[in-house]
Design a protein around this nucleic acid. Structure first.
Length: 574
DNA sequence: ATAGGGTTAG
């Protein structure tokens, strides 16, 4: 049988497999299910195999052994059609064949990949009836299914009920929580894992780092990093990739560069992570420099993600010509342009004020434009005050049935900038009729491990009095520096004074004022905002960084802004 | 009849 194995691994094409099969049939070795299973497994799993052929061979045999079924179910589970794996599993049941733990395992793996919650639950119930209830591997897979399908409470419950758990079990839930928008819980589970004496591995720390990235929790990220060094995972490529991403998303791009420079082996993902990180921090030149050198210096070929990162870098740094060049170059290197690449270029042109070209790009592209593209164009029209094109984009969005709050807000902003209050009212009316509401902006700041959340005009914070007093003081001091409130950023048709107040009490300004009174001098003030930072706040933050000699970092929906000595790292281009 | 299955960053 070992001989069959070694022959199989020499097969590089279906033709070779068929030749081998012919010999096995002649020598009557193929009558043994062991031999057939080997061939089926190779066909259905190996990249040089052929799942369709495996199915064909399977159908020519009767009285299948469980392992032959398993080979097919497993093959489909990792194919592009995981649903087929579940269908084969069901067929097996119908033929009164009893699946073993492996069949269940492969079928569940398929459920995880196709996000089949219903099917996952069925198979979960069945394997308990088959007597595999105590199988830790099966339980781990089910936790993964539940987590990926978004029923984290069930994943958690199953985890809690287990009497024995191993490292992958912990990992399945840590990763599930991290990917399921519960990074806090992921981190505390990671800590609980360590406290209970289970030694985290590569995958556990990657999950923990991913949670830190989402939270922008630099201090906890550093803590995890220290642990990583302690257990000598700090040369592991995937761990380093997660570290790069974490440091970049926590606002400490220099630390991300350190990790990148020191790591012994860089993969494609490493390059993509650092280029994207630099892009988010507005370091377009550095990002493009790395992009240009990756192929020549390390032989790593850029893929679609790399190109997206490079275009994004050009975008945030205003490198219009470089971005267009990179975009055109893609097809030459055999990387297909997808809708996100187009989105980036439309943004690039739009931000540079080249609205007609941006519009042409959308009209001439070979893909069906999505709402994001028209929203991008609408955003550019808002910046440059182009009413006609804005109306066109807005109309397209309406036709597409897109009713995102941002569309209405931007259209209304375009009108408001020209004082066309009747049109503003019309947009607001449409918003009401279509039941669209502006997603409330909120900002938070973490001080001494406690998260303080603010919404616009928030007066619920216990230090509210102090915060508002500080904002009034800031308002006076920045006006002395020539600040004029950007009331054009306010869409409501209200009096100038009210507008000023609405502006002054934006959530990010509240968080900033709180930071000024609580974060000790010399320390960085870090703020997170769920939407993009407002234009007026951007101006104010620059002034505050100068007048109060404080460094402020804002991570918004799209990127980082680092305010220092009156300037922002984005160079006012965002 | 032998084992084989689970968790992974851009």
């Amino acid at each position: 049988m070992a001989l069959v194995d070694s022959f199989l691994h020499k097969c590089k094409a279906l033709k070779h497999i068929k030749q081998l099969q012919a010999q096995l049939i002649v020598s009557s070795a193929f009558q043994s299910y062991l031999c057939r299973t080997k061939l089926l497994e190779f066909c259905s799993i190996s990249p040089s195999g052929d799942l369709g052929y495996a199915v064909e061979v399977f159908r020519h045999v009767d009285n299948h052994h469980t392992n032959e079924w398993n080979a097919i179910v497993r093959g489909f589970a990792q194919s592009d059609e995981p649903r087929q794996a579940v269908e084969w599993y069901v067929t097996m049941l119908h033929q009164a064949r009893r699946p073993d733990a492996l069949t269940c395992s492969f079928a569940l793996k398929a459920c995880a990949r196709m996000l089949g919650l219903f099917e996952g639950r069925e198979i979960h119930g069945q394997y308990i009836r088959f007597g595999f209830e105590a199988d830790v591997l099966l339980q781990t897979t089910v936790i993964d299914v539940y987590a990926k399908c978004g029923v984290l409470e069930q994943a958690q419950q199953l985890f809690d009920e287990m009497t024995r758990r191993d490292v992958p079990t912990w990992n399945a839930l840590i990763t599930g929580l991290a990917q399921g928008n519960r990074p806090r819980d992921a981190l505390s589970l990671f800590n609980r894992m360590r406290d209970s004496g289970v030694v985290p591995n590569e995958i556990s720390v990657i999950g923990a780092l991913s949670a830190c990235s989402q939270l922008g929790a630099a201090s906890e990220g550093k803590f995890v990093h220290a642990y990583i060094s302690e257990v000598r995972l700090d040369t592991n490529t995937r761990v380093c990739n997660a570290l790069i991403d974490m440091y970049a998303k926590c606002g400490t791009i220099d630390l991300a560069c350190d990790v990148f420079n020191k790591m012994p082996d860089r993969s494609l993902v490493s390059w993509n992570a650092i280029i994207m990180g630099l892009a988010m921090h507005g370091r377009g030149f550095h990002a493009v420099q790395l992009f240009n050198q990756m192929d020549s210096s390390s032989g790593v070929r850029p893929d679609a993600v790399t190109y997206l990162a490079a275009l994004c870098a050009c975008n945030h740094a205003g490198l219009v010509e470089e971005g267009l060049r990179i975009f055109k170059e893609m097809t030459k290197y055999g990387v297909t342009q997808n809708i996100k690449h187009y989105g980036c270029v439309v943004d690039l042109l739009g931000r540079a004020g080249r609205l007609e070209e941006a519009h042409m790009m959308i009209k001439s592209m070979p893909l069906v434009p999505d709402a994001v593209l028209w929203q991008t164009l609408l955003g550019a029209c808002n910046t440059y005050g182009n009413i006609d094109l804005a109306e066109l984009a807005s109309e397209k969005l309406r036709e597409m049935g897109s009713a995102s709050d941002g569309d209405y807000v931007m259209m209304s902003n375009v009108y408001a900038a020209y004082g066309r209050w009747v049109d503003v009212g019309r947009v607001r009316e449409a918003m009401k009729v279509n039941e669209v509401r502006k997603m409330p902006g909120c900002s938070f700041i973490e001080v001494d491990g406690i998260v303080h959340n603010f919404v616009n005009g928030d007066q619920t914070h216990s230090n509210s009095k102090e915060i508002y007093a500080k904002l009034d003081e800031i308002s006076i001091r920045i006006k002395a520096f020539g600040y004029v409130p950007g009331t054009r950023f306010v869409l409501h048709d209200i009096g100038e004074e009210d507008k000023e107040n609405v502006l002054l009490y934006h959530s990010e300004k509240l968080a900033m004022a709180f930071g000024l009174v609580t974060v000790k001098e010399g320390s960085l003030i870090q703020i997170y905002k769920n939407l993009r930072i407002c234009g007026d706040c951007h101006i104010v933050f620059k002034l505050v960084s100068k007048i109060y000699e404080r460094e402020i970092v804002v991570r918004d929906r799209a990127r980082f802004h680092r305010f220092k000595e009156g300037l922002c790292s984005c160079g006012d281009y965002w």
